[in-house]
Design a protein around this nucleic acid. Structure first.
Lengths: 115, 115
DNA sequence: ACAGTTGGTTAGCATTTACTTACCAAGAGT
DNA sequence: ACTCTTGGTAAGTAAATGCTAACCAACTGT
């Protein structure tokens, strides 16, 4: 599920492909012309992206139009978001605890100085 | 930058490690005990995660406490969010255009039937 | 019918990756 | 001092990955 999406996004070329078709569908040739690698390489990347449900194909006669499929990112985004949120919350709680301890220390020192 | 984070997250074991230390820091041994692989393997995964800035270490005597570093996800999250949002917006626009064309067709047919 | 375009697939290659075993260094506890 | 615990590092290995060159299939336009 999410494994496929995470794996697909791990390659920089594949991320660039996604960005390239983000706003407009385009053919394999068009996509490949934007990269320093051969068309078969792009074709293989496209297969990975389609398998991961991050892209969809629309055959039209001779050509095949590829477009981005944002829904394919849902699971990964959910995971990332959940992780990010709780992790950050924990961090904040800890920082607050530290600050609290510092304040306690200060007041204790003040108490000693006064006594 | 983001490449390292994306690459680090592409491995399921590394994602599980992150989730494991999401709420509490823990030592290498503790982490490793949750996986079917040897401790050196975990150590290597931890190196990847730290290099990608997704984790931080706190040495304490003999042990090393690892914790998640959510800030390390900022760039990747931003990329994903931006991609997801604009891509989805484009999709919506297209669906609306299609629906519009359908409506136009319908009214044309009605016109023909009436004449 | 036939040449050109478009793009998926295969085989082979070099590199990377995830793993294990063996080893080593540093701190902890007796 | 010396042993045990903890964990990083190195070498080696099998599998996966990204690439190219060569090939093939399907559709296009003449």
């Amino acid at each position: 599920m999410m494994d496929a999406a995470a794996h697909a996004l791990s390659d920089p070329t594949r991320r660039q492909i996604l960005q390239l078709v983000r706003d407009d569908e385009s053919t394999v040739g068009e996509i490949a012309s934007n990269f320093p690698v051969t068309r078969p390489a792009i074709s293989q990347h496209l297969k990975v992206l389609v398998d991961a449900q991050l892209m969809a194909v629309r055959p039209d006669g001779n050509r095949r139009y590829y477009r981005a499929r944002p829904e394919g990112l849902t699971d990964l985004r959910a995971w990332l978001d959940s992780f990010w949120r709780t992790s950050l919350r924990n961090l904040k709680v800890e920082v607050e605890r530290e600050r609290w301890n510092e304040l306690k220390d200060e007041s204790q020192h003040r108490g000693l100085d006064d006594g």
